[in-house]
Amino acid sequence: MHLPATSVEDIDLAIRVSGLEKSYGAVRAVRGLDLEVSRGEIFAILGPNGAGKTTTIEILEGYRTRDRGEVSVLGVDPGTHRRDLKARIGIVPQSASSDPFLTVEETLQMYAGYYRTPRSVDELLRLVGLEEKRSSRVQRLSGGQQRRLDVAIALVGDPELLFLDEPTTGFDPSARHEAWSVVRSLAQLGKTVILTTHYMDEAQHLADRVAVVAAGRVVALGTPDTLGARDVSMADIRFRHDITAVPSSFEPASDDSGYVHVRATDVTRTLYELTRWALEHDVELEGLQVLRPTLEDVYLRLVADAEGATT
């Protein structure tokens, strides 16, 4: 995605952060963080615990003050215009609960009453798939159902921007896939979604762009497929064969499971040379695969580099 040049008036940006800093006593939680998120984007923030993700998100939401830096959310400063912002953003906090004695429908009606132009409760129940639970008390919902109610509560004011802080932590796989489909349907409604997560597959499935935050800074930014030059970095070609038979010009290496590995920067050329050699010598390259570093590999390397640099 191409980002336009920034200016304060830029209406295409949902979020603009530059040089953000925040300390808790001697702990420097955020150390000069820059971020730009376009409207309509699903933007994921990845990072280890203590990287400053939640602090950053809570500054954007208006819960925390900042020490230094510029922050603009939907064109206003959350530090000074929190009240205006409240009606325009929705938040699914990391840990949230609502009154256990009210029903699902009552809870949504109650929250709807706080906004001038709320979404219809029926529509929200359909969107998050809680229609059958509308008359159940919140205390009788399963964990996944409560999380879906959290999302519905965040949407009740029809926000332009939605913050999802680790929305699927503790979900079973099917509940996670349900939650993902809800988030995708939000994007179809034209919402901007900021998502923090520990799960690489979640970022891979949902996000248009990903920022990796470590030690209070953005250390990498890109689409899930290009993050950390994942698409152009060295690939690993592997197949099963007797390694002594492979020409040494390929610099083959073997592993414990009987695969021969060939590292390649120019995959097309190396693959062509490899298969030509194989055809000429009538060799079958059993189980031939080209492997790219996974998002997780890239993430772990970035985080390790960032933490190594600051300690």
Partner: peptide, 13 residues
Amino acid sequence: DTDILKRLDATPL
């Protein structure tokens, strides 16, 4: 303690 207030605080209430 159960974060109910924190969430209310995020709304225009």
